[in-house]
Amino acid sequence: MHPPLPALYAESRPLPPYRALFAVDAKDFTGLPAVQHGPVSQLIPELVDRALENAGLNELRDSKRFPANTGDGVVFGFDPVFLPFILWPFLGVLDDILGAYNQQSVGPRIRLRASVHVGPLPDADQPGDGNGTARNDTHRLLDSRPVKAILAAASEQITHLAAVISHRVYEDVVLGAYTGLHPDRCVEVPATVEGKNFSQQAWLYVPSPSGNLLEAGVRPREEPAETVSRELGPVSGSGTRYSGNTQHVGEGAALMGNVGGDFTYTGRSASYHGTNQHWGSGDNVGRDKQVDGPRDPR
């Protein structure tokens, strides 16, 4: 017997606990040959777990709530206390892990979109746990136009990860200064999904922007006041090491300012189409912009 559906607004009931959510999916997964789908589907959660370990988040890795393999990615819930560390340093570590893997792999490149959100979700070790509006919005953010466009516009040699952060997480964690991710490393975007009734304010963070993204108003990341050195080994080795939530950044860049409209990218050169694009530095683009090609930010 399925439990009866609760009547709306007929009575008050306890609010489910707030759970943070992290989701990733792979760019161009459906374009891979069918024989590669299974191995790549298994590889992505392994890379995510390795990044959690290298970021010092073993406790989170072992305490995921309602984890799921989506075929082209993974999604899981976790205690919101870890949100500051997911934003920084985990996203940067994951970018490093993907870069090291792609550099030595003879198979397809693994480039990921990620989304981070938080909200009330059932979590009582019962069937249906983790389902709710917050879960739906996490996947909508992951499929939104800006994060897809920014990953398509970047060099596949340098930029391996693009993350979209919900406004709720940005406001509570980033503006609240609980994380090492500075607000100036994020860019505001309208998150919309083609064919879906979804529109939210969100924030993009790209740990390693490249090429044409640099032409659009991106500056190198600055080191935190307190840093520790990091060493990046092979993907099968120790990887990036962190102490607490500080790191020494040897390279990379950050998006600045606001984007006030959809933008798309075509071809290998930097061509952005659309209007009302606002960047905190660099050019303000009112029409199509064309530059010669990507640069290596290093």
Score class of each variant (00 low, 15 high):
residue 103 Q to E: 14
residue 69 N to P: 01
residue 103 Q to W: 15
residue 82 F to Y: 15
residue 57 L to V: 01
residue 126 Q to M: 07
residue 125 D to P: 00
residue 72 D to L: 03
residue 150 I to C: 09
residue 42 Q to W: 11
residue 107 G to N: 07
residue 92 G to E: 11
residue 75 V to H: 03
residue 110 I to M: 14
residue 89 P to L: 08
residue 56 G to E: 08
residue 144 S to P: 08
residue 148 K to H: 13
residue 103 Q to M: 14
residue 35 V to F: 15
residue 39 P to E: 03
residue 112 L to C: 10
residue 48 V to G: 00
residue 154 A to I: 07
residue 94 L to W: 01
residue 80 P to Y: 04
residue 49 D to S: 09
residue 56 G to N: 06
residue 88 W to T: 11
residue 94 L to Q: 01
residue 109 R to L: 11
residue 128 G to R: 01
residue 30 T to D: 10
residue 42 Q to C: 14
residue 65 R to A: 13
residue 34 A to P: 05
residue 54 N to S: 09
residue 69 N to K: 08
residue 129 D to S: 03
residue 21 L to Q: 07
residue 162 A to G: 07
residue 122 P to T: 13
residue 151 L to C: 08
residue 101 Y to M: 02
residue 101 Y to T: 00
residue 93 V to A: 09
residue 106 V to Y: 04
residue 35 V to S: 12
residue 69 N to A: 08
residue 150 I to R: 12
residue 55 A to N: 01
residue 51 A to Y: 00
residue 90 F to Y: 15
residue 87 L to Y: 12
residue 74 V to F: 11
residue 163 A to C: 14
residue 41 S to V: 12
residue 21 L to D: 02
residue 138 T to N: 11
residue 85 F to S: 13
residue 124 A to P: 04
residue 127 P to M: 07
residue 64 K to D: 01
residue 76 F to N: 00
residue 108 P to R: 15
residue 85 F to E: 15
residue 90 F to N: 05
residue 50 R to E: 11
residue 81 V to N: 06
residue 104 Q to A: 10
residue 44 I to D: 00
residue 60 L to H: 06
residue 79 D to W: 04
residue 158 I to G: 02
residue 154 A to Q: 09
residue 160 H to Q: 13
residue 162 A to L: 08
residue 132 G to D: 05
residue 56 G to S: 07
residue 129 D to P: 09
residue 107 G to W: 10
residue 111 R to D: 07
residue 106 V to R: 15
residue 121 L to Y: 05
residue 145 R to E: 12
residue 112 L to G: 12
residue 96 D to A: 13
residue 24 V to P: 00
residue 30 T to W: 06
residue 121 L to S: 04
residue 132 G to C: 01
residue 117 H to A: 07
residue 78 F to I: 09
residue 56 G to P: 06
residue 108 P to F: 12
residue 134 A to I: 00
residue 136 N to V: 08
residue 54 N to W: 10
residue 107 G to K: 06
residue 136 N to Y: 14
residue 119 G to M: 07
residue 114 A to N: 05
residue 93 V to W: 00
residue 90 F to A: 06
residue 95 D to K: 04
residue 71 G to C: 08
residue 139 H to A: 12
residue 132 G to H: 01
residue 24 V to I: 03
residue 69 N to M: 05
residue 155 S to I: 05
residue 54 N to M: 05
residue 121 L to Q: 03
residue 153 A to R: 12
residue 115 S to F: 02
residue 27 K to L: 12
residue 140 R to Y: 06
residue 137 D to T: 09
residue 27 K to C: 04
residue 61 R to S: 10
residue 153 A to P: 10
residue 45 P to D: 02
residue 57 L to G: 01
residue 65 R to S: 12
residue 54 N to A: 05
residue 82 F to N: 08
residue 146 P to L: 09
residue 41 S to C: 09
residue 147 V to H: 03
residue 80 P to V: 01
residue 108 P to T: 11
residue 72 D to F: 05
residue 102 N to A: 05
residue 130 G to D: 12
residue 68 A to Y: 02
residue 130 G to F: 02
residue 116 V to Q: 01
residue 86 I to M: 09
residue 112 L to P: 12
residue 66 F to G: 03
residue 109 R to T: 12
residue 62 D to V: 03
residue 24 V to S: 00
residue 150 I to A: 14
residue 99 G to A: 14
residue 21 L to W: 03
residue 133 T to D: 05
residue 159 T to R: 08
residue 101 Y to F: 10
residue 50 R to T: 08
residue 59 E to L: 11
residue 30 T to F: 04
residue 95 D to E: 14
residue 156 E to R: 15
residue 118 V to I: 10
